[in-house]
Amino acid sequence: MSVDLQTVKRVARLARIAVSEEDAERMTGELNAILGFVEQLNEVDVSGVEPMTSVTPMEMKKRRDVVTDGGKAADIVANAPATEENFFLVPKVVE
C-alpha cells in the first residue's frame, strides 16, 4: 500500500499537525519509503497467532478504589502556557 498527497494531508489533519504543501509532498515520499519497508510483514504466516497484548505475562495489578492523591491544582497548572485561577485557558470553543 502507498499513500498519496491527499491521504498525507488527511493524516496530518488527524494528527493535528499543520503541514504546508511542500511538507506534505516531502512526507508523501518518506512515508511511502517506510510503508514499503514494512510491507514485508505480509509474507509472514500468522494464521492462528494471537496479537501480542502484554509483553510479559502478568496479572493486571489492582488497587483499592480510594483517593490516594490530590489537592495539587497549582502544581498541575504550573507549566501551562495560559491559566487563570487554576484553570487552563484555551481559545473559545463554544459560541
Partner: peptide, 16 residues
C-alpha cells in the same frame, strides 16, 4: 499547547 510547553496562537483551538 494547553497543559505544558510551547503554544503557538491560532484562530481557533484546532488551529492552535
Amino acid at each position: 499547547g494547553v497543559r505544558y510547553g510551547l503554544r503557538v496562537p491560532g484562530k481557533d483551538i484546532v488551529d492552535m
